[in-house]
């Protein structure tokens, strides 16, 4: 929540003002964000087209421009914010940015960096777990099996659901990349 919003919500309470110190700027962070697919975000001139375009920004505290700003300055604490996960990746900001920046991709990249730092939203772990377990982010259930039968479709779709070997290859592929350790392991139900 921004300071202003805090003030609005609790008018009697004084907002905590903080000084951002240059010692918090991590120049490496901005570079990592850029090199992981966000490219030239340093060219952002803070016009606000992105925030003004953002459908989520009208209903949540996400401020796209400020996310980019924090990345440019190297304020790594952006990775720990809730708002980072409010973007629907709709791409409106990307399509309108007058500096032609890949705004949405910058956000997705920062999410990935957040995951690497251990900020893993439970839903993300769950979905990755499903893909690992079933090959589907949305696995089938009893009700749908019945409906499929009724409609004359195969009870199971011709996907990993029907081909155990294919599922195995998905699992092996996931094990071969870092996702297994960072997300799948941590996302297992017994680990919470």
């Amino acid at each position: 929540m921004s300071e202003l919003e805090q003030m609005e919500e609790k008018p009697t309470q004084r907002a905590v003002f903080e000084v951002i110190r240059s010692s918090e700027f991590d120049p490496e962070f901005a570079k990592v964000v850029a090199s992981s697919g966000a490219d030239e975000i340093v060219q952002c001139f803070q016009c606000g087209t992105c925030t003004g375009s953002c459908p989520m920004g009208r209903v949540s505290a996400i401020r796209t421009r400020q996310i980019i700003r924090m990345a440019v300055l190297g304020l790594k604490k952006v990775l720990a914010t809730d708002e980072l996960w409010h973007c629907t990746t709709c791409g409106t900001c990307y399509d309108r940015c007058p500096r032609d920046l890949k705004v949405t991709e910058a956000i997705v990249v920062m999410r990935m960096l957040a995951v690497r730092e251990g900020h893993i939203p439970p839903n993300l772990a769950r979905i990755v777990g499903y893909v690992y377990q079933y090959g589907h982010a949305v696995p089938i259930n009893e009700e749908i099996r019945n409906l499929r039968k009724k409609l004359g479709l195969s009870e199971l779709p011709p996907t990993t659901h029907s081909y155990p070997q294919a599922l195995e290859s998905v699992q092996k592929a996931m094990k071969a990349t870092s996702i297994y350790e960072t997300v799948v392991e941590r996302g297992k139900p017994d680990r919470g």
């Binding site: 992981s36 990935m112 993300l124 979905i127 990755v128 589907h136 996907t159 029907s162 990349t177 996702i179």
Partner: peptide, 27 residues
Amino acid sequence: MEGASCCPAPGAFGPADLFTWRVLGAR
């Protein structure tokens, strides 16, 4: 496409690891 998996979902899965996302997509 017999044996296809989830695409995998760009937003719900992608950020977990963009490389894995590409690997499963490429599969």
